[in-house]
Computed example of a mutant assay.
Amino acid sequence: MRRRPSFPKRRLQPRNHVHALASPASLKGVLSARDAAALLAEGFRRGGVEAKALPIADGGEGTAEVLGARVRERVRVSDAFGRPRDAPIRALADGTAVVEAAEAIPLDPRRLDPLTASSRGLGELIARVEADRLFVCLGGTANVDGGAGLREVVRELPAPTTVFCDALVPLRDAARRFAPQKGATPDQVELLEKQLASLSELAPYAEVPGAGAAGGLGAALAALGAELVPGAREVLDRLSFRDRVREADLVVTGEGTVDETTTTGKAPGEALRVCLDEGTRCVVFGGRVVVELAGAETVALSGDPARAATDLIALGEKLSS
Rank of each mutant, 00 (worst) to 15 (best):
P5Q: 08
S6D: 12
S6Q: 13
F7S: 14
P8E: 06
K9I: 14
K9H: 11
Q13W: 12
Q13V: 12
P14E: 09
N16E: 14
N16A: 12
H17K: 15
V18L: 07
V18E: 02
A20S: 15
P24F: 04
L27A: 02
K28I: 01
K28D: 01
V30T: 12
L31G: 09
L31F: 13
L31R: 10
L31Y: 09
S32N: 10
S32V: 07
A36S: 08
A36I: 11
A36C: 10
A37M: 07
A38H: 14
E42Q: 15
G43S: 11
F44V: 04
R45T: 15
R45P: 01
R45Q: 15
R45N: 15
R45W: 13
R46W: 10
G48R: 14
L54G: 06
L54M: 12
A57D: 08
A57L: 10
D58E: 06
E61R: 03
G62K: 00
A64H: 06
E65C: 04
V66H: 02
V66L: 02
V66Q: 03
G68S: 08
A69G: 07
R70Y: 01
R72S: 13
V75D: 04
V77F: 09
S78D: 10
S78C: 00
D79Y: 05
D79T: 07
G82E: 08
D86M: 11
A87D: 11
A87W: 11
P88K: 14
I89N: 09
R90T: 01
R90K: 13
R90L: 06
A91G: 11
L92I: 11
L92R: 12
G95H: 09
T96F: 01
V98E: 07
V98R: 03
E100A: 02
A102W: 02
A104L: 10
P109R: 11
P109S: 05
R110A: 11
L112M: 15
P114F: 08
L115C: 03
A117M: 13
A117C: 14
S118K: 04
R120M: 02
R120N: 00
G121Y: 05
L122W: 06
L122I: 09
I126C: 08
I126M: 04
R128T: 13
E130L: 09
A131W: 07
R133C: 00
